[in-house]
Design a protein around this nucleic acid. Structure first.
Lengths: 201, 201
DNA sequence: GCAAATTAATGATTTATTCAAG
DNA sequence: CTTGAATAAATCATTAATTTGC
């Protein structure tokens, strides 16, 4: 049992926060030097390597694009062409929009100064991407039959005994305290928490 | 006159107390078997089903996160680094923080022994946890060249110090800010790293 | 005091992301 | 790229607190 050194980076909350802050500040494709800098600073909060930073920005940028693309497709028809493109794709495009007026950059003190105003190169300014957490609300027809396979493992694995709908019997069930004995229920090999012996999901 | 069975579970004070105790003890995402166990024990105090337990932990965890996130955002600046990271993201991340020093675990006698110190299974394990997938890394081809350059540059230049995988050193690395010096680096099998420019699902 | 009216908590569902395997 | 499993985020819905007018 090799300690199997975890193979990937697990950013700490602070790291994520700072990265997001930089991202919001306009950083998109930091140069090698910048990555070094960022890495050095973030290493204060936990293990981290340059590639983690690099990938983080790559991924974040890509997924942002993804989100926007989807959103645009959805709007599709009612997209008002008179409005500014909302955002962009290639890095080149983001820049030079608003600028300079980060309300009052109350950047986290955790963020190295050099990233505070992150001026020209990759600063994109804030009022840009609206997070817009508008929810979907799926169309009813779409959820057809899979009601059953829905919520997690619990419903499926656990609610076996006296499942569903026996109505609420008035008093307590005071069910026989079947005291378990953990186990069976199949093992999963990875992705379990530090579990020692038993840990079945 | 079906009393129209109430529509949702109403935990008894004992149940809530025990659940909270387990939560404080580190339980976050109990496995199916664990849920069974918990459910069986809690049924002593009132009607309860596995899914109630499942949902309880889901909600409690989520609302904890929520609270902390809000708090962090508010503090934003005056975040005391000497304090434990406070929270987390994925379960994996929580671990290794609080622990061991629950003032003096005066666990309720109501709590089955197996949940008292709840050490290994789902507790904040140590630095071990799951993620063991070596992800990513771009597939060299199919990449607009600028990205590729980037990729190459970074990975190869930045990933120097303690490349590969050494395990998660428990604490933070707090590495000395070593500022670079590029390196060769041998990368292994790459998979791909979705972040290029096209990613819609 | 005590309900109807409001608001806060929290149980239950649904949707979105993430991870890693195919 | 696509997908199944897991789980986090968002949000819907009902119950419990609290407030308010009498």
């Amino acid at each position: 049992m090799p300690p199997a050194a975890s193979t990937r980076w697990c950013p700490t909350p602070e790291q994520v926060m700072l990265l997001e802050e930089m991202y919001r500040g306009g950083v998109r494709t930091p140069s090698a030097a910048q990555i070094q800098q960022i890495t050095a600073h973030l290493s204060m909060y936990g293990k981290i390597e340059g590639k983690n930073v690099f990938y983080w920005f790559q991924n974040h940028k890509a997924r942002d694009r993804q989100k926007l693309k989807k959103k645009l497709l959805l709007l599709h028809g009612n997209y008002d062409r008179t409005q500014p493109p909302i955002l962009v794709y290639h890095d080149h495009l983001h820049h030079n929009f608003h600028q300079k007026h980060h309300h009052d950059d109350h950047q986290s003190p955790l963020l190295p100064p050099c990233f505070h105003h992150q001026p020209p190169p990759f600063n994109c300014s804030s009022p840009t991407f609206p997070p817009l957490a508008q929810r979907g609300h799926a169309s009813p027809e779409m959820r057809s039959q899979n009601e059953e396979c829905y919520y997690g493992r619990i419903i499926r694995h656990l609610d076996d005994d006296h499942h569903g709908h026996d109505l609420h019997d008035a008093g307590f069930t005071r069910r026989p305290l079947k005291t378990l004995e953990l186990f069976p229920i199949k093992e999963k090999t990875f992705r379990n928490q530090g579990s020692s012996s038993h840990d079945l999901r």
